[in-house]
């Protein structure tokens, strides 16, 4: 993808040259960026989108909505058995009651890791993900390599993440859809009985909630 952040690209558009003296024009965005600007302008002119609402959504996903939300939910489930039971029974409702509803009304299902089972989440078709509690998925989650391989060889893919699952443990792969997203509740780190919910949350990583990692252990607590 071209990125015209170089003024020596200027010769490509000399026919637009309106430079005065030593002034240079603004950096020309990439072709896709200009196409998106055109769409946004047209949709705004037609009254189909509100620029302030777009900015608010972007701001939320850039600054407030991310894995720290999921981490709080997992930490609470470690701390409070009743909450955990409710979460496993109806995560959509429990998480919605906490104020984190999906952008498109999608359902969330919580799956728990145990001594017998390790869960891992994928979207084989595109990139469905529990956005409202984990934010925008990382690049690897969207990659063809992960999406196509984790279903066929989950243990092999997990070992590439540095996660070797014991042969006696079952690995379950959950394929997300436009309607159903999954949250993995990882196993609680050992020797954390004294920690507060906030401290527990700081152990819960994004990857541990997708199933490609484990929570931090006590020595890693900041």
């Amino acid at each position: 993808m071209s990125d015209s952040h170089h003024h020596d690209d200027d010769h490509h558009h000399d026919h637009h040259d309106h430079h005065h003296g030593s002034l240079t024009h603004s950096l020309l965005p990439s072709d896709p960026a200009l196409r998106v600007k055109a769409m946004e302008t047209l949709l705004t002119q037609k009254g189909l989108v509100d620029p302030d609402a777009l900015d608010a959504l972007i701001d939320a996903y850039q600054n407030r909505i991310g894995p720290q939300i999921g981490a709080k939910i997992v930490a609470r489930s470690w701390h409070d058995p009743d909450f955990r039971a409710e979460l496993l029974r109806d995560a959509t409702k429990v998480i919605g009651d906490m104020g984190f509803t999906g952008l498109q009304g999608e359902h969330i299902v919580a799956v728990e890791n145990t001594d017998e089972v390790h869960n891992v989440v994928v979207c084989t078709l595109c990139s469905c993900y529990p956005w409202s509690i984990l934010g925008i998925p990382p690049a690897w989650y969207k990659s063809e390599a992960y999406r196509s391989r984790v279903v066929i060889d989950p243990r092999g893919v997990l070992s590439e993440f540095g996660l070797d699952i014991h042969p006696d443990k079952q690995v379950r792969v959950w394929d997300s859809t436009a309607e159903i997203r999954y949250l993995v509740i990882p196993q609680r780190s050992e020797n954390t009985e004294e920690l507060s919910v906030e401290q527990l949350a700081s152990l819960v990583t994004r990857d541990s909630m997708v199933g490609t990692g484990l929570p931090k252990i006590m020595g890693e607590l900041p």
Partner: peptide
């Protein structure tokens, strides 16, 4: 979360129209 501003813009446009 977004490598480029237009990634964020098209994410928001797609969600808002839905």
């Amino acid at each position: 979360p977004f490598a480029e501003p237009w990634h964020a813009q098209i994410f928001a446009l797609t969600h808002k129209l839905a």
